[in-house]
């Protein structure tokens, strides 16, 4: 073997090792974050956390019951808002995939996906908060809904495209209108996957903080009113984390743990469901 060849092979080996190292380097923060969240958070989770309200500044104890409920309400509003719009948009893109209009819309959805969440928050502020001069749960839900829309659009379109075209033709041949064929036959066929996609989108927006800061704001008290500011896990954790109180720090970790657990569960469930669907769709 010539010296040149030996050198090239050495280099090749070296770079292969470096790539493996890159994987290890990336997994270290992942492991650390999960470790700390579990270590600090799991221990701080107790019954109080789920059932009590935040205590006044300086007092220890209490929980995040209002924030947990608040997050659920917010993502509920987001879903109500984003699923119809994103879903039907996805239907249009799947049914008319190659028109210029569809390309533009698809592009717009991609753009929306990349808009920083805080900017979307400003938009929701201008749209929902400013006109009524009041922060509200609706404003927060709408902001989250905007963030959800691109994901719902993309998932819906992809899954509808996977449904075999014969289904639509069969329905039309039986005399169904286009709308009936699509919404009655094709969408139901793709529904499990679409629902999974929606779950993934919900998981994502459940973890958002920035757009809620000036739409839903936060609320120390129990509130389920849609027209009032509402507490949320993320903003509560954010507030607590920046405070000087140890007990609040402890609760912040607990909140983070809960968030990560929710997101992890949803994400694993979605992965499993997607894999099962893929296996079903491949003959």
């Amino acid at each position: 073997m010539t010296a040149n060849l030996r050198r090239r092979k050495l280099f090749s080996r070296l770079f292969e090792i470096l790539c493996g190292l890159a994987v290890v380097i990336a997994l270290i923060p992942l492991a650390m974050i999960l470790f700390y969240v579990i270590k600090e958070g799991a221990g701080a989770l107790n019954w109080d956390f789920f059932t009590r309200m935040p205590k006044p500044v300086g007092e220890t104890g209490g929980g995040m019951a209002n924030a947990i409920v608040g997050t659920l309400i917010l993502i509920g509003i987001a879903a109500l808002f984003a699923v119809p719009i994103g879903g039907i948009c996805g239907v249009h893109l799947a049914e008319y995939p190659s028109t210029k209009f569809s390309s533009v819309v698809r592009f717009a959805a991609d753009v929306l996906n990349g808009v920083p969440s805080i900017v979307v928050g400003i938009f929701a502020y201008g749209l929902v908060v400013l006109p009524v001069k009041r922060f509200s749960a609706i404003a927060g839900g709408v902001a989250l809904g905007f963030l959800m829309i691109p994901i719902v659009v993309r998932t819906t379109e992809e899954l509808l495209r996977l449904v075999p075209g014969g289904l639509r033709e069969g329905a039309l041949a039986l005399g169904a209108t286009r709308g009936r064929a699509v919404f009655g036959v094709i969408v139901p066929a793709a529904l499990p996957g679409i629902l999974t996609g929606i779950l993934v989108a919900l998981a994502r927006v459940a973890g958002e903080t920035a757009p809620l800061l000036f739409t839903a704001l936060n609320n120390r008290f129990w509130s389920t009113s849609l027209t009032q500011p509402i507490a949320s896990l993320t903003v509560q954790v954010y507030t607590y984390a920046q405070s000087p109180y140890d007990d609040w720090h402890r609760q912040a970790w607990a909140g983070a743990f809960l968030l990560v657990m929710i997101i992890l569960t949803l994400s694993i469930a979605a992965r499993l469901a997607v894999r099962r669907l893929e296996r079903m769709n491949r003959p």
């Binding site: 119809p84 039907i88 948009c89 249009h92 008319y96 209009f101 569809s102 717009a108 209108t177 709308g179």
Partner: peptide, 24 residues
């Protein structure tokens, strides 16, 4: 009808993006 109906929803997505720039 189907095309226009679904297209309207698709247009909303487009409007949102344009709207953000405009509103900002």
């Amino acid at each position: 009808k189907f095309r226009l109906g679904t297209g309207a929803f698709a247009a909303v997505v487009l409007l949102i993006v344009v709207g953000i720039g405009f509103e900002l």
